[in-house]
Design a protein around this nucleic acid. Sequence first.
DNA 1: TTGTAGGCGTTATCAT
DNA 2: ATGATAACGCCTACAA
Lengths: 373, 373
Amino acid sequence: MLHIFEFIMTDTLPVTVPEISLTNKYYFVLSNSSNMKKQATIKDIAKRLNVSISTVSRALKSAPDVSNETKASILAVAEELHYQPNRLAVSFRVRQTNTIGVIVPNLDYVLSTMVKGIDEVALEAGYTVMVCQSNESFGREVLNTSRMLQSLVDGLIISVSSETKTFDHIKKFQERDLPIVAFDRIVPEIIAPNVILDNEYAGYLATDHLIQQGYKNIAILAGPKNLGISNARMGGYLKALKEHNIKVDQKNIIHCDFNQDYAYFATKELLKSKNRPDAIFTISDRMAIGAMIAIKERGLKMPTDIGLIGFNNEPMLSLLTPTISSIEQPMFEIGKMAAKIFIERLHSEESAITTEVLKPRLIIRESSKRIFN
Amino acid sequence: MLHIFEFIMTDTLPVTVPEISLTNKYYFVLSNSSNMKKQATIKDIAKRLNVSISTVSRALKSAPDVSNETKASILAVAEELHYQPNRLAVSFRVRQTNTIGVIVPNLDYVLSTMVKGIDEVALEAGYTVMVCQSNESFGREVLNTSRMLQSLVDGLIISVSSETKTFDHIKKFQERDLPIVAFDRIVPEIIAPNVILDNEYAGYLATDHLIQQGYKNIAILAGPKNLGISNARMGGYLKALKEHNIKVDQKNIIHCDFNQDYAYFATKELLKSKNRPDAIFTISDRMAIGAMIAIKERGLKMPTDIGLIGFNNEPMLSLLTPTISSIEQPMFEIGKMAAKIFIERLHSEESAITTEVLKPRLIIRESSKRIFN
DNA sequence: TTGTAGGCGTTATCAT
DNA sequence: ATGATAACGCCTACAA
């Protein structure tokens, strides 16, 4: 171990890091690995009190069969030595880490709120959450699962990437008997609990609302074809039309990426057609923004000329002009529910494979409200 | 182990989870812990080939002193048995987990992008990242650090909560010789590398820009008093004023929470005063939104009557009317830099305690641009 | 109530 | 080039 600058090395280094500066780099050099305190173990405590390590082990977890006397002294010494259990050793020994692996495609508004929900109940239950982002990449997701599998987690809570079509990497958890819970995006092939939004109902809600407001020629920017949530939301759209005896016009169903620019161009095209839609339902808020821009460019007014409703109810929607209607997911609740189910599965022998379907809420704002009562 | 519903239990369960429904709950019951495959260990491989476990261990990490022959056969069997090293055992043995603990106050736009940067280089270097949110709570932060410390991480990359005033919980990492890197928000007391934005320069940039645009009576919504970044950004504000010989009016310096509502009320008050400011610099975009709402309510026009500039350059700013100027942080780079420094420290004996100060960028939009050239 | 001892899966130090 | 063995820190029968 090389101590190049030992002269600076003291226990209470009087160096203060400058808080801010216009130049680029300040540095102070000191040696590493100097005052490395070795962590106390139960062995140390045992030695100190001339008791066996098993007694210490028992006392520390206040097993019923230790005398209060010895227990007290052990606890005292543990305190004094700043004893911290070596979680790695415990995990290794008892074959569980008290850590939940969470994999999400990204940490956008919706998902990060869901993760916060997971965090909430996991922490409560004494679990640590390990969050990894797949960046919507299948390869990354597989890498993440495989690292997690190498024994660091007690199970997996996952929202799969959009690229994910096969699920072997997830099934591996089951083979090791580790619980899995899927949320947000469903995992069809896998026999695992799912916690999702009622996307069909959400699509229905949005479309029905537009119809109620007197819109008759309603287009949908439906996201990528064959994506679960796309189909489900579109299913609700179709259902609402049918219920109101409105004929489906295939030209009103646009499949495009979950993406502001795509939505912009798609809307631009839509508005050019001679029988242009008088309302648009986009299955994400970002897409709604794209649509909005195209609508404004075209000189159309919302909600009079054309109605618009998005999906997710991101906070910015209420800041736009006009404010934009949307569908709100119970994000936090979805996260909490996923974690709750996960923990239940962790503790129970038999396990009901449930699909929890949470209800969305319609948020009506200016962009779609043209009837007042 | 209770197998209540064994009759359903088969290897390839033909049950498919319904993708979506309007009712609330579908479930199928099956038994847990059925096809639990025990994970193969080096012992199993050794037994299979009648070699010692040490040989297997060596072969698996292709040590120089194994014959190619035995190595090949070992690798083959490992493959066949789907051998995966037990990371827990390895970590326990070698006392390092190849996991980096990351603690952030939340996962908003800025921080989640920074985390993505950390993720990027950590993954590259073979490390797994474990992200925890402190929710701006000191207690939560301490809990997180203590859990991480119980040996699951090789070090810490942290953006401290706003409540954090003492740093003992962070110092504990040093005592165990685990590297720490602070980012986004600086950790003054701790001798650890910092990666931050040049907040003073950022404040200077914003204020100077407003001055260049002819604004003379510039207010600042400066965030909580005594918060590092608040003071730094305000420092830049003061510097710019001084440089242009503009007298500082204490009434133009408002300390309020990082929060849209506070900013709204503060701005409302500001605009009532008889010598009202003709421009406002808010040190977050959320605060800029609050200010914008107050400005509009008052019937003032941006940028003619009053100028406005925010901080962070969140994407929504370009969607508002008028579009809002802001200061952009190199978020991704800050994250990458933090991870890079972290990994350097992990691998090097002596360590330079540096403060990396990255430069912001001024993004001019409608809300502050009233001079065209 | 307390102690002894074996073992979790791996690595590393000795021998051979 | 390979094998035996101890050790990492902790838990848990089992014995006393």
